[in-house]
């Protein structure tokens, strides 16, 4: 094990080491194929008022340099049920996104530059929920940290896309399992904006770690959002055809 060290300047080795840890995460993540989950978002105001959103999430792994494809279908509030968001994520550029509005039967292209926008009024922004693409960030290894006897790598990552709502993020990565533990977000004015913690991890297919609770807290206004995720279902037979504009018309 390496001992804790902090580097005051960006050295080549810290950049390489930071990226190497995410490359390792990427390698460990590869090969999952596809998965789907049901999720509940609980939005809390500063005064403790709550509001719930329910959705289904489908993810197809991108092969080679192709990005992942995701489909989110909203189930509640019931007024927007059946509304769906299709994302074809792209390496190091804006994602392609379409919104399906069931009442009109309309598929509407939306700007993939909306990364910083709040997702359904929650403390998650679109970019927080987007699939991880290695080339979306520059990295810098900050050091190691032990919390309750568990060792973490601490890495800073800087979004390459100017549309990102963040100047930088600090990520705690579990040293043994290479999974996210915590991320701290700094806004464009360099103030601490949000903190997210990943909990209740389970391992699927003996390989892929997935969290079942994600708590996002906005440090600037005291609002928070909990994302509760039901059992993940892996390799359910999703394919490219499940993530086309035509497939949006089949959503019930």
């Amino acid at each position: 094990m390496l001992s804790f060290f902090a580097l005051p300047v960006y050295s080549d080795s810290s950049v390489e080491k930071g990226r190497a840890i995410f490359e390792e995460m990427d390698v460990r993540e590869s090969g999952f194929g596809d998965f789907s989950t049901k999720q509940t978002m609980i939005l809390r105001s500063k005064s403790g008022q709550e509001s719930r959103r329910q959705m289904e999430n489908y993810v197809l792994e991108g092969i080679g340099s192709a990005g992942d494809k995701t489909l989110v279908i909203f189930r509640s509030p019931k007024r927007v049920r059946g509304t769906a968001l299709l994302t074809h994520s792209q390496q190091a550029k804006d994602d392609d996104q379409w919104l399906y509005l069931p009442i009109l039967g309309r598929v509407k292209r939306i700007s993939g530059a909306s990364k910083a926008g709040a997702f359904l009024g929650s403390e998650f922004s679109y970019e927080d929920l987007a699939p991880l693409e290695l080339d979306d960030y520059d990295y810098r290894f900050l050091g190691e940290e032990k919390v309750d006897g568990v060792a973490f790598y601490k890495i800073e990552r800087i979004p390459r896309n100017v549309d990102s709502g963040y100047s930088r993020q600090v990520v705690w990565v579990h040293q043994q399992y290479y999974r996210f533990e915590k991320v701290v977000f700094y806004d464009r004015k360099e103030t601490l904006l949000k903190e997210v913690v990943f909990k209740d991890y389970k391992r699927y297919l003996d390989k892929y770690w997935r969290p079942h609770t994600i708590n996002m807290v906005n440090k600037s206004d005291g609002k928070s959002t909990d994302l509760l995720i039901e059992e993940y279902k892996f390799r359910t037979g999703l394919n490219e055809e499940s993530f086309t504009q035509a497939s949006l018309r089949r959503i019930k």
Binding site: I110, S111, S114, A116, G117, A118, G121, G165
Partner: peptide
Amino acid sequence: FEYTPYGLAGSSQD
């Protein structure tokens, strides 16, 4: 055209 600059005056409103 449609123009959607997210985050009105630094808030989460769009």
